[in-house]
Simulated scan of single mutants.
Amino acid sequence: MRIDTTTPGTLTVLAGDVTVASYVHAPTEVQLESPRPYALLATTSGAAVTAYRPDDHVWHKGLSLALPVVGKHNFWGGPTYVHGEGYVQLPNNGAQTHRGFELAEVDGDGVARIVEILDWTAEDGSPVIVERRTLTARSIDDGTWALTWHSALRNLTDGVLGFGSPTSKGRENAGYCGIFWRGPVTFQGGEILSPAGLAGDEARGEPGPWLAFVAPDRSAGVLVLDGAEAPNPWFARSEEYAGLNPAPFFYTETPLVPGETLVLSAAVVVGDAEVASLADTVGTALVAELRATRNTIEETEITR
């Protein structure tokens, strides 16, 4: 893997001469879309496996950490679900702003490692969260590569922040929240696989260690693994659009008291239509690494 920093506002990861990830850390989207850094991903042959601002939800951007409910704040983008009223556009769209990179290098094993500090602010600009984000990218074989995402979030407010979803607020079966992968329009209608086999949209709301998504033409596949110690429910869609994310706040809110830290992590493996076969080997190793990172970061002070 190689890292290229020559494009302003974007950190590019290459496998050989192919760009497999463009990490946009200086987004230019409007406040309504809850602007945040995001990664646009591709296969080792250069085929896109993420979408950017699709017509159905313009606030969906590649792979990103998107949270619709953080106390009164919306870090997902667009309107907020209000029980009894539906989706309402409120003045609560926050932003995640890149403060700087602590690290951006490739180690002796060829693993690209990025450590970033971000400031999460409310729509009025007041501080809500400070985050240390650790990303890694590595080649698995000629046709497969993997990315890990680890976020440690510290509450900077003087009150408890409840992390939730539209379902935790009363909307049935809409528990999207977390490290969210949005696939291209061409992936719509593809297969969703679980450890039990073909799962489809019925995987939504069910717990498990991983889900995989295979494009309808079987040209590519994406395996997403939850880095949590215990299986979380998943948000999963194929019929309406291609989307996956481990959703720890699907059904219930998690409170974060002032000064405390919450950790979210996931791994994404990009490969061919058989990528789910790597869950027990490559996937297990990636999750073990994420959990080890989790223990280290939780002991590290994140400065304001």
Rank of each mutant, 00 (worst) to 15 (best):
M1Q: 00
L14K: 14
L14Y: 12
D17G: 12
V18I: 15
A21W: 09
T28A: 11
T28Q: 12
V30H: 04
V30G: 04
Q31K: 05
Q31M: 04
E33Y: 12
P37C: 02
L40W: 03
T43E: 08
T44M: 13
A48W: 00
K61Q: 13
L65T: 11
L65G: 05
P68K: 05
K72D: 15
G78W: 00
T80R: 06
V88W: 06
L90P: 04
L90I: 04
N92R: 04
G94V: 05
Q96F: 05
T97A: 07
F101C: 04
E102V: 08
L103W: 09
L103Y: 10
A104T: 13
V106M: 09
D107I: 10
V111G: 06
R113F: 01
E116L: 06
T121V: 15
A122C: 03
A122E: 13
D124R: 09
S126W: 02
R133A: 07
A146Y: 02
S151I: 05
S151M: 01
G159P: 02
G164H: 05
T167H: 08
K169E: 12
G170A: 10
A174H: 12
W181Q: 00
T186A: 15
T186K: 14
E191M: 08
P195S: 00
A196C: 00
A196R: 06
G200M: 02
E202F: 00
R204F: 00
P209D: 04
F213E: 07
V214E: 12
S219D: 12
S219T: 15
V222H: 10
L225Y: 07
G227D: 10
W234T: 06
A236H: 05
E240F: 03
Y241L: 14
Y241C: 06
A242H: 09
A242Q: 12
G243E: 15
F249D: 14
F250S: 03
Y251H: 14
E253L: 02
E253C: 01
P258F: 04
L262Y: 08
G271N: 11
D272A: 05
V275S: 03
S277A: 14
A279H: 05
V282E: 15
V287F: 11
A288H: 08
I297R: 08
T300S: 11
T303C: 01
